[in-house]
Design a protein around this nucleic acid. Structure first.
Lengths: 338, 338
DNA sequence: GAATAAAAAGTGATCGATCCACTTCTGAGC
DNA sequence: GCTCAGAAGTGGATCGATCACTTTTTATTC
């Protein structure tokens, strides 16, 4: 039991002295094992194993000015895009980076402050923000910052705005089923570019196709707001189709309709977004938009990596990220509401 | 526009020379502004502002051997406990720590390897794992590691196992409604202590109350598995109540029952877990267990912080973290299945 | 076997902070 | 005016790696 474990981790010098070589040789061993003579390599290898040596990454970072860490900044809240983060994380990992996920309480100002702090602390080499920031003015950033909502400013048609394009398809589809009056229950407009983009595409499409909209109600991705939005409709509303910000909101909308005695989809069609698992098993199952979260995460990290390396932005992926899925919650428009 | 921003961030030496003091004085200013003579303080303050100086945290960490960072290790997958993480994050933040969330692909071996690497890299001062690890043997850890599943080994009745105690209440409640034969659809037994604990409390309670169980089916928190579990039941099954691992699984169970022509809750009662928002708005709405995720996150971090500081474990919170919520998916047992 | 080139290993500086051991300043007390 | 204690400030060492150079060893060629 008296394992007499060293109180503090071994340093490169201790390894060197045990192996009978200089610390530089050990360092070389760490970066490129092949540049050592086999005999030397074996000695170093043995010393490393014996002392159970692991390089101190903080010290290494200090010298190389290279932390191999990226940060992903999220607005804190219930919205935690697990699959997207996992994919982002893995892509970064394959490129030799660790990902730190930072969730920040508060609005875009708080977020920006935290990002600024992070950018200048020297702890990360790049920052990816999925929620809008407010640091346009400050050009003092020390590290590349990729803000997912700015994609479309630079690359028309890519990412976010394109991400909202299924709204157009949804409306066209519903219109083809005879629906004429729509309602949009949007996401958190303030903190999510995606919510903003979906809303603007909604309004634009309604306008373009000459359809009617009973409004675009700002909510916060919550089912409760979806529920409330339906209950707030006047009794003589002509709305027969709802485009919800996501599946959770759609669930609230469906339940709201039920509470009013409307049947879904007989009286009201509801479209969700995200293809969450629960939507497939809900009753009625939700028509929705399948989002390739993995691709989104991957692409975002690749963009960030390109910026870090000073390379041009990677070619936008050609295949579509979103796909409409039709389930039980949508149907042809009713002749007239009973 | 020729703002001639310094290519590299200012160092403490540059600040010192601009302020006309030594670098040590600037350092002192950074840690305790009051230990400076007012006149000196003003000079330093001015220089810091002028150069827009921010201490390099990597360099600081190197010297102080103090990174002020914690890591939370998660099994990668769809299971991303947002609220818990936000609470943990905030608690850590208040104590002066940053939290890094690391999601690791693979099973407990991969996780353990990553944790070990993290522990010895000198980059974090403590690690919190919500999924079981496999490093019991290795006692070479350099930093405290709190594994949420080990809570109960050390503090009987706290956290995890206690966390599963509502299973007992659920079964007692259902039994009082006349249910006699149960089915448990568990979570990811391999990677989640919580899933394991719920299962063992389920089996134990069934046994203790002299009830019947049609089995405890291992699944992976997915609705699909819940659905499959129901479809796999024989036609003459006597199961009238299902204890699902969580709300998502419960949704699958409900839909599975529907597919078999069973009504919920008339023919089958279903209990979920987590009080997810969708459960309240689903049809039927789900009976479930409200979990105080915020408290869980807070407590876990406090435990970790105590261990880092070498203090005794904080007193376990007295109030209960879990609360049963009864909704539409549970009802008295049917006389006999049609 | 000597000359030379190339490969391998070593020396000491360096990254940007903090901390320790001093030195210098300031002001109170006699 | 002098002493002396405490406050304020300084210089240099240090944390543990990497890197630019230099030196030593090995391999190659004539």
């Amino acid at each position: 039991m008296a394992e007499s474990a060293p109180r503090r981790p071994a340093t490169i010098h201790e390894v060197a002295s045990l192996a009978g070589v200089s610390h530089t040789t050990v360092s070389r061993y760490l970066q490129d094992k092949d540049s050592l003579k086999p005999k030397t390599r074996v000695k170093v290898e043995f010393a490393v194993k014996t002392l159970d040596y692991r390089p101190n990454l903080v010290a290494r970072s200090m010298r190389t000015r290279h932390t191999n860490r990226l940060a992903i900044v999220l607005a804190s809240g219930m919205h935690f895009p697990g699959r997207l983060l996992a994919a982002a994380s893995q892509t970064a990992h394959e490129a030799g980076y660790q990902v730190e996920i930072v969730s920040v309480e508060g609005g875009s100002a708080a977020r920006s402050a935290r990002v600024d702090e992070l950018a200048r602390s020297g702890q990360v080499e790049g920052i990816l923000a999925f929620s809008p920031l407010a640091l346009k003015g400050k050009k003092t950033n020390r590290v590349p910052i990729v803000e997912s909502s700015t994609y479309d400013d630079n690359l028309h048609g890519l990412a976010e705005l394109a991400d909202a394009s299924p709204v157009r398809e949804i409306i066209e589809h519903l219109a083809s089923l005879g629906h004429r009056t729509f309602l949009h229950v949007s996401g958190d407009i303030e903190n999510f570019a995606s919510a903003r983009n979906r809303k603007s595409v909604y309004l634009e499409t309604i306008e373009r196709l000459g359809l009617r909209s009973a409004g675009a109600i700002d909510c916060d991705w919550s089912a409760q707001r979806g529920y409330d939005a339906i209950l707030a409709l006047p009794d003589d509303t002509e709305v027969t189709a709802v485009v919800a910000a996501n599946d959770v909101v759609a669930m609230g909308v469906v339940r709201g309709a039920l509470a009013r005695g409307w049947k879904v989809p007989d009286d009201l069609s509801v479209f969700g977004w995200d293809d969450e698992e629960i939507g497939r098993f809900a009753t009625p199952s939700l028509s929705t938009v399948a989002v390739d979260r993995e691709a989104q995460g991957r692409v975002a990290i690749q963009r960030l990596l390109a910026e870090i390396r000073g390379e041009p932005a990677p070619t936008p992926p050609e295949q579509k990220i979103n796909r409409l899925i039709f389930r039980e919650s949508t149907a042809p428009a009713p002749r007239q509401r009973g």
